[in-house]
Simulated scan of single mutants.
Amino acid sequence: MLEPNGIPLDSAAVASTVLEAILYGFSVLMFIGTMWALIHRRGMIEMNKKMVAVANLLLFFSTTHLIIDIVRTEEGLVQYRDTFPKGPVAFFSDVAQWSFVYKNMVYMLQTLVGDAVVIYRCFVVWQSLYIIALPILLWCSVALTGIGCVYSISQATVNKENIFAPGTGPWITAFLASTLAANLLSTSLLAYRIWDVTREVGDARVGRSSLWPILRIILDSGILYSVSLLAALLCFVTKNRGHYVLLDMIMPIISITFYMVIIRVTIKRTTSQDMQATTRLTRGFSTNRQSIPERQHYPLKPLQVHITQLTETNDGDGDIFKSVSNAEDIGSSKTAASVSDVAIYT
């Protein structure tokens, strides 16, 4: 059997708390930007109350987790440094400590909220319960294994100084594998739907100017979270204590990936609206110039123009971006329109 290896636990406690605090600072800044995007820009009446609630919930969980980590570090290195048997290393190895149990419970809740948001966005895009059936089952697996993790840790009596022990290790492995699978599958389904609609638009150049940036946003956030989970899972499977550091870092990363999607989509939408306004002004100027007599005239031929635009609708819960591709045959009365509803619930 593999023996635990890697960074000492007292050093891991300091490193994980510092890195988590740095990422938490970024997440707070992004939370402020998210609130601006959801409330200030849309107004109190039209704001997406569901996403506002999720954003605040993620901030609450990540803040609580950081506070527990700070208290835990102070207890292990200062308060019980000379009184705890075998010193700080033994303190941080004791999985039955209240701080370790509660921080893992908060991490489980944060994970459930983050995964639920990805699955919900997937449902909004596909509008089909059959598509998200497997992600929902994986989410239920995350919930069950997460509860098993917290319970097994809180009840640990034998080998409680070893997180990799048979009583706790399999639960944690199953939890990390379940959340990784749920995130990968939901993100893949969401990205595929957006890619499929972009492909159906037909004009690749126009498609890239509308939906490709949104697709990149989805992939960026999904990859960031998935890589973090994969690294934590590999560390735990190989019994490397580095997973303590990675799991603490994942807490603010979950919040960051959620905030990143909303902020970047809002910036993209604002840029698109500015470009549309500039285009209308340019067309108006060109129309005024048509009154000027021209010496040369060229015969006009029927022309097919593909126009792709991002429109927004409000259904009382939030904004759904729609990709609309209209093909108009100028010079004739025939118009072909293909409308596909896709994108991100913000």
Score class of each variant (00 low, 15 high):
221 S>C: 12
223 I>V: 15
223 I>G: 05
223 I>W: 07
225 Y>L: 14
225 Y>E: 07
225 Y>C: 12
226 S>G: 09
226 S>L: 05
226 S>A: 14
226 S>Q: 10
226 S>H: 07
226 S>I: 02
227 V>N: 05
227 V>T: 03
229 L>K: 02
230 L>W: 13
231 A>P: 09
231 A>M: 14
232 A>E: 01
233 L>I: 11
233 L>K: 07
234 L>G: 05
234 L>Y: 06
235 C>Y: 12
235 C>T: 12
235 C>S: 15
235 C>E: 05
237 V>H: 14
237 V>K: 14
238 T>K: 15
239 K>Y: 13
240 N>R: 15
240 N>Y: 08
242 G>T: 10
242 G>W: 04
244 Y>N: 07
244 Y>P: 02
246 L>T: 03
246 L>C: 14
248 D>C: 08
249 M>D: 10
249 M>R: 10
250 I>R: 15
251 M>R: 13
251 M>S: 14
252 P>E: 11
252 P>K: 12
252 P>N: 11
254 I>A: 15
255 S>W: 02
256 I>T: 10
257 T>M: 05
257 T>R: 00
259 Y>R: 01
259 Y>E: 00
261 V>G: 00
261 V>F: 03
262 I>S: 01
263 I>P: 00
263 I>A: 04
264 R>W: 03
265 V>I: 07
265 V>S: 01
265 V>A: 03
267 I>V: 11
267 I>T: 05
268 K>Y: 04
269 R>F: 06
270 T>Y: 10
270 T>F: 08
270 T>Q: 12
271 T>S: 05
272 S>V: 06
273 Q>F: 08
273 Q>S: 07
274 D>S: 13
275 M>C: 07
275 M>L: 11
275 M>I: 13
275 M>F: 08
276 Q>I: 09
277 A>I: 06
279 T>R: 08
279 T>Q: 14
280 R>I: 12
281 L>G: 03
281 L>N: 03
281 L>S: 07
282 T>D: 09
282 T>F: 15
282 T>V: 13
283 R>D: 06
283 R>L: 11
284 G>T: 13
284 G>L: 14
285 F>C: 06
285 F>R: 09
